[in-house]
Design a protein around this nucleic acid. Structure first.
Length: 742
DNA sequence: AAGGGCGGTGTTTTT
DNA sequence: CACCGCCCTT
């Protein structure tokens, strides 16, 4: 029983409150994962609930794995039969069993963003839609939000009454759905939508899962969207043992349909819901927490709460402004190297966070030159790389011949002399007869006007048929080997012989490793590895899932990816208006948008346990042109007293003044939506200088105490000469030396 | 059929 | 800057 005594009062209350709807408002770092794991343990150990009856939904696969592990450590048995997974994985698992009820084949394929775009191109071509006016991206976005609100194409059509633009989208939506179905494919949103539809239309299936999932827990509830809400409400409708955990201040996924009302109105929807607030933070120092609180306080429409901590104040938050993004990266990388060198921390205690993926490049370059191990999370997903998608398309074709997209992707990869004209002929033939592309290909001799393309296509079909037969016999790893061998895929890359081809081959090796790991895992679980299973796993992994705590590298990622994680030292970079908050949100007339950015800032700050460094650059290349940005408005929301005095702030020398005028002129020119107030700059107390003067005694972290003998202005920093008592005379840059006046 | 070159365009953020 | 689509050449 003692494990529950280590929890604080509110945590314990949440753990013991097992029956009926429960909303746990858990501030950042307040131990919500602990609550969830202990709650599961409590259900099993103390309430005698069968692990089989528990469903826990997490935000990432990684979080799911960790939760299972932690429960395992507490309970010691039965944790493997708890259903812990993400919304998407949960739905796939259910759909694999029952989607035939909705007229799909159970070996459906999952389309990623890339596939969706390809399909949308086809749809637009077919409907003769000018993609200059209706961009694929926007069409897909419109469809996605419709799906997130559970609006079917038919309903969309009805709502579009009298609106030409919407009617156009309705037609696209209809055709898009039709083609998905024809390809026996589901997109990401469909996974959720079809699961809800399944429950809505198949009472026996619903009954089964309601009986099974008597206790439901949802993590990161603030980021659920309408479909997800419907899914859990319908599942929980019978037993009503629904526990949701979240923090409205950390809702950062509105752009993908997250509905903050799900958490704000939980008590209205479930009138008898119990609400428990967790406000004690165990993660961060007082200074970090106060900064976070100060920022988030500026948001309206949030549930009132203030995080507090029993941890000490800790170090001050360091803030630095640099001339360029290049300088910023240089500083951060050097700072990390220095800390590690001093033995203060390991590389993987450091995380660099930024608003957009593009910002990672600067840092990457610096890390490469510095020879420091690093890992960039996000950006281009491993499984979205060309070579990986190609090989997976082979596997998909072998697994599900109805996936036209996959077949068309590989029919001429590597080159076999099958051109676009031939492919189009087959496509037309298939469309006219309403059969699949591959099926048409099998009967290629019946297709008119194919000419000499026919024989090439026949041998392609023969190749695939060979693989299909083989797939029945051998393991996936062997199948892939054979695909590579027979198609000459790697051979072609070898012939290219450049760095890029080299990287692609490495990726292919990595794919082999992943397949081997999958097969290994299956053998361990005593299951038979299946191609469909593997492809499904692949479709739903996020890059963040591959983060490995045991490898020592600096971690770089977007603020979004950082949600739910924590690091001893966090660098929050690119703190500039126009970057963070992003240009899109500050020019938007919806103030909610900036509020979401502010929540993102709150998430970023609260990732830090001990040290937080905020940085920005005056000048930065964005999309090929130099931008001059003001400091982020969020920085100004942080009280000065929380910031370290050693930080070098704005220097009003001539060059900078000119830049200021230039950028202000530029910004006023660009948009009037920017704040009309003059830029409020942080100032060092005496107006300029590094905070000490010639003749002052100073202290250095490593060299001890000494006398400042000269200060000269360098390019973008002061060069300080110090006569140290023990270490001799050193010249150093003020920004790096971090000298303290004594 | 395929590859190279040119111009236009555009970004938050992700399962 | 980097990607994509289009057009041109071979």
């Amino acid at each position: 029983m003692s494990i529950y005594e280590k929890l604080n009062e509110q945590q314990r209350e949440a753990v013991f409150y097992t029956e009926g709807p429960l909303l746990v408002l858990a501030g950042a770092g307040s131990g919500k994962t602990r609550v969830l794991t202990h709650r599961i343990a409590y259900l099993i150990e103390e309430k005698g609930i069968n692990p089989w009856n528990i469903l826990a939904i997490t935000f990432t696969n990684k979080a799911a794995g960790e939760m299972r592990e932690r429960v395992d450590n507490i309970v010691g048995f039965g944790s493997e039969s708890i259903w812990v997974s993400t919304f998407h994985s949960t739905c796939v698992r259910i759909l694999r069993r029952h989607i035939d009820r909705l007229g799909y084949d159970t070996n459906f394929t999952i389309y990623d963003t890339d596939d969706q775009k390809t399909l949308m191109k086809d749809v637009c071509k077919y409907l003769k839609i000018d993609t200059k006016i209706y961009k694929e991206r926007n069409l897909l976005a419109a469809i996605s939000s419709a799906k997130n609100e559970m609006i079917t194409p038919q309903e969309y059509r009805l709502q579009a009454e009298g609106d030409f633009h919407k009617q156009k989208i309705a037609s696209v939506y209809e055709e898009y759905e039709k083609q998905l179905r024809a390809n026996n494919a589901l997109d990401f949103d469909d996974l959720l939508v079809k699961a809800v539809q399944l429950f809505q239309t198949q009472p026996d299936v619903l009954e089964y899962y309601q009986e099974r999932f008597r206790y439901i827990m949802v993590d990161e509830y603030q980021d659920t969207n309408t479909v997800q809400f419907m899914l859990i409400s319908i599942l929980a409708a019978k037993y009503r043992n629904l526990c949701v955990v979240g923090d409205d201040d950390q809702s950062i996924y509105k752009f993908r349909g997250a509905n903050i009302k799900n958490i704000l109105n939980f008590e209205q929807v479930f009138e008898d819901a119990k609400v428990i607030k967790l406000e004690q933070n165990y993660r961060s120092t007082g200074n970090i927490l106060n900064a976070a609180n100060a920022v988030i306080r500026n948001n309206r429409g949030r549930k009132d709460k203030t995080l507090w901590t029993a941890n000490g104040e800790g170090e001050k938050i360091s803030f630095r402004q640099f001339d360029s993004a290049y300088d910023e990266a240089e500083y951060v990388v050097d700072d990390i190297r220095e800390h590690v060198k001093q033995g203060e921390c390991a590389y993987n205690d450091n995380a660099i966070l930024y608003r957009t993926n593009a910002q990672s490049r600067m840092f990457e370059e610096r890390f490469v030159t510095a020879g420091i191990p690093y890992k960039i999370v996000g950006g281009i997903n491993f499984y979205a790389r060309k070579e990986i998608k190609d090989l997976l398309a082979y596997l998909k074709t072998i697994d599900n011949g109805q996936d036209d997209l996959a077949v068309r992707r590989i029919i001429n990869v590597p080159k076999r002399g099958i051109g676009l004209t031939s492919v189009n002929r087959v496509q037309e033939y298939a469309a006219a007869r309403e059969i699949g592309f591959y099926d048409a290909l099998r009967a290629v001799d019946l297709i008119p006007n194919i000419g000499r393309g026919a024989s090439k296509m026949e041998s392609f079909v023969a190749l695939i048929e060979h693989f299909k037969a083989e797939a029945e016999q051998v393991r996936i790893s062997e199948l892939l080997e054979d695909i590579i061998e027979m198609t000459g895929y790697v051979e072609e890359l070898k012939a290219e012989g450049d760095v890029e081809a080299e990287a692609r081959m490495e990726n292919i090796d990595e794919l082999k490793n992943k397949i081997a790991a999958y097969e290994e895992a299956c053998t361990q679980k005593g299951e038979l590895p299946s191609l469909s299973d593997f492809l499904e796993e692949v479709a739903l992994v996020a890059d963040i899932d591959s983060l490995d705590e045991n490898s020592d590298y600096v971690i770089l990622m977007t603020l979004h990816s950082a949600k739910g994680l924590e690091f001893p030292h966090v660098y929050l970079t690119g703190m500039e208006d126009g970057i963070f908050p992003s240009y899109m949100t500050i020019t938007s007339d919806d103030p909610e948008e900036v509020e979401e950015e502010r929540r993102l800032c709150y998430v970023g700050i609260t990732r830090a346990k001990q040290q937080l460094t905020l940085s920005c650059a005056r000048r930065r290349m964005v999309r090929g042109e130099t931008q001059y940005n003001k400091m982020s408005r969020f920085l100004k929301e942080i009280p000065m007293k929380l910031l370290s005095t050693g930080a070098v702030f704005e220097r009003e020398d001539k060059e900078v003044k000119m830049q200021n005028t230039y950028r202000q002129a530029k910004q006023t020119f660009q948009t009037k939506a920017f704040s009309t107030k003059p830029v409020q700059q942080f100032k060092v107390s005496n107006g300029k200088g590094p905070g000490y003067d010639v003749g002052d005694r100073v202290r250095h972290m490593k060299f001890g105490e000494g006398l400042v003998t000269s200060i000269t202005e360098g390019g973008r920093d002061y060069e300080v000469t110090v006569d140290f008592d023990t270490a001799g005379t050193k010249k150093m840059f003020a920004a790096f030396a971090r000298l303290q006046k004594i």
